[in-house]
Design a binder for these strands. Structure first.
Lengths: 354, 354
DNA sequence: GTGAAAGCGCTAACAT
DNA sequence: ATGTTAGCGCTTTCAC
């Protein structure tokens, strides 16, 4: 049960000094005779010794802990990602400390400070904030920032890795799917306008729209988003968007939502109007949360390979630590995959009216 | 930015000794003159001093960290609970370290060990395992175990608090709702048979069934659950249950699922059969995850007041710490609330056939 | 190749 | 009322 077994006791049991044990612990066993090393290992096992993390951290200033900051664990996408990341981290001997930013830059910064004070030097940040200025000073002082779901932007602090799907491709694939089904009036719905991936997905959307020979200027645009929009839960954003889109101008026959939770809200909004999903109005989401396949109708969506992404994130941390490479910054872009289900179908002969 | 400001520097700046600063830090300012205290506070603020947690922990053997072990963060219920708990903990100056047990006793134990080694002495454990024997030795050595969603059982180690809803009432309220709608063939579906809250909810179910004058022996029972059932995701359990229930014997007109995710799977199973939810078959869940109101049809469910429960959990931790009360063990049972939505309706004239 | 010893920043006796 | 000081368990020069 590892209560209070110290490195001294191990040293005594093995008949060596503490520094030798320490060397073994930190994989420097090359510096000693195999036989010595074996004795140390035996003692460690016999006593069920586990190094005290606090002492180690006090000494080195480092922890084997990865900070994870997500916008909201109550969104199953982030919950699932957290689980995957934790799994991957544990495999490398790291712990995960989780924080919820609720998309609030203040809380985001608060968590980074908190984690920093705790000696955490590796943070996987799931943010969509355009600017990272508030974190620049931490990065300068040695914070290993891994950005998730937000590519590195010009102007970002250096020494940052990023992992995410190619959102441009994602937006474009979702859109082509719809235009291929004959849709010509496609709306794009997202919450915060300031999010980076929103911008990129929207760009992909526009590119595909134009490639299909449609006039982007004629598409229904959701101008909504009152001042308090950032505080709305994603599904509510979707629901409102539908109500707005169908109460002014010619309505869309298809809607692309910035993520699955928003898409679910969009679906609810469509049902509120008495319209059919996948018939009157098609809906595409992003993420592929487990629920996407469970709801009725099941949701067509752009899948993010979270297990893969989580593993890559941890790999970045581990690699950085091992190689101490403070120069290169990896921007990893994974290919998204469109999962076609029942929420999308052929465009109706003429648009439904709310 | 709090880089390397130590207690010495604060002491020097305030013109006092480190122990005085330490006393201020640990709310023992009564031991000094107000003026001294003020100077210390001023110095702390001026230098933006933050105590080094590792050093503090090394010295005291304690951390202001609450461990939270949930069955699965990818279930939005646990995600939402984690968020609430974190919020409450932060308000009291505590951090939260999150772990996913995946309902595996081994992983559960692994996390407890890991947390213990990290100096964590307060753990909120969301478990449904009947026996807590594997944790008894930790409790003896001073672990503050707060059980969530699993009442204290006879035979549990002492010194454990528990927080949860009254599952008996929950099971019974859900059932009465259905019998009130005229349902007479009601099935009860849950994953692991060994879970404690499953037992209690089922007991409440049976009590209500009998109170309604029905013969429990005649109810459709889901005997399913092959050996690998523990590894199934909750929705899949629900889906399979429906298939089994409708392929043998007279089918139910209503189904109570052990939680919302399972209920969602049940709904999917019902749709697979081409039957209507809330018409042919009524469905009730437990939890009231945000999605319950979002899906179609919206889900009737027994709500767990998570924000309240999370606040209570943290309160337990804080109170224990302050009063150092190692004797009393609080078992807090909150009243659940039935939220009636569209997945339940009057019993059909005669049961549907799959 | 191995050991001795100096702290990392903090807390809590114990002195004054 | 405040100061002095001895470690908590570990890592890491620096001697040998």
């Amino acid at each position: 049960m590892a209560d209070k077994v110290t490195i001294q006791q191990v040293a005594a049991a093995a008949g060596v000094s503490t520094s030798t044990v320490s060397n073994v612990l930190n994989s420097r066993s090359d510096r000693m005779q195999p036989e010595t090393r074996d004795r140390v290992f035996a003692a460690i096992r016999a006593l069920d010794y586990r190094p005290n993390r606090a002492a180690r951290q006090l000494r080195t200033g480092q922890t084997k802990t990865i900070g994870l900051i997500v916008p909201s664990v109550s969104n199953p996408f982030w919950g699932a990602f957290a689980r995957e990341l934790e799994q991957a981290a544990l495999g490398h001997g790291y712990n995960v400390l989780l924080g919820n930013s609720e998309r609030d830059p203040g809380r985001e910064l608060g968590y980074v400070e908190e984690l920093w004070d705790n000696g955490v030097r590796d943070i996987v940040l799931c943010t969509s904030l355009p600017s990272l200025d508030h974190l620049a000073s931490f990065v300068e002082r040695g914070l290993n920032l891994i950005l998730f779901d937000r590519p590195v932007q010009p102007g970002d602090p250096p020494l940052v890795a990023s992992i995410g799907i190619d959102n441009h491709v994602g937006g474009s694939v979702a859109t082509s799917h719809l235009t291929g089904l004959g849709h010509r009036r496609i709306a794009f719905v997202s919450g915060s306008q300031r999010s980076v991936n929103r911008t990129v997905r929207h760009a992909g959307f526009l590119a595909a729209v134009q490639a299909a020979g449609l006039d982007a200027a004629e598409l229904p645009v959701w101008a909504g988003l009152p001042a308090d929009a950032d505080e709305l839960e994603a599904p509510e954003v979707g629901r409102r968007a539908v109500h707005d889109l169908f109460s002014a101008g010619p309505p869309p026959t298809a809607i692309i939502a910035i993520n699955d939770m928003t898409a679910l809200g969009v679906c609810k909004g469509i049902r509120d109007l008495g319209l059919g999903i996948g018939t009157d109005v098609s809906v595409v989401g992003f993420d592929d949360i487990p629920l996407a396949d469970l709801v009725s109708p099941s949701l067509t969506t752009v899948r993010q390979p979270i297990a893969r992404m989580a593993a890559l994130a941890v790999e970045q941390v581990v690699t950085r630590e091992r190689t101490d490479d403070r120069e290169s910054t990896h921007a990893i872009l994974l290919r998204p995959e469109l999962v076609v289900r029942d929420s999308t179908g052929a465009a109706p002969a003429e648009p439904a009216r709310g």
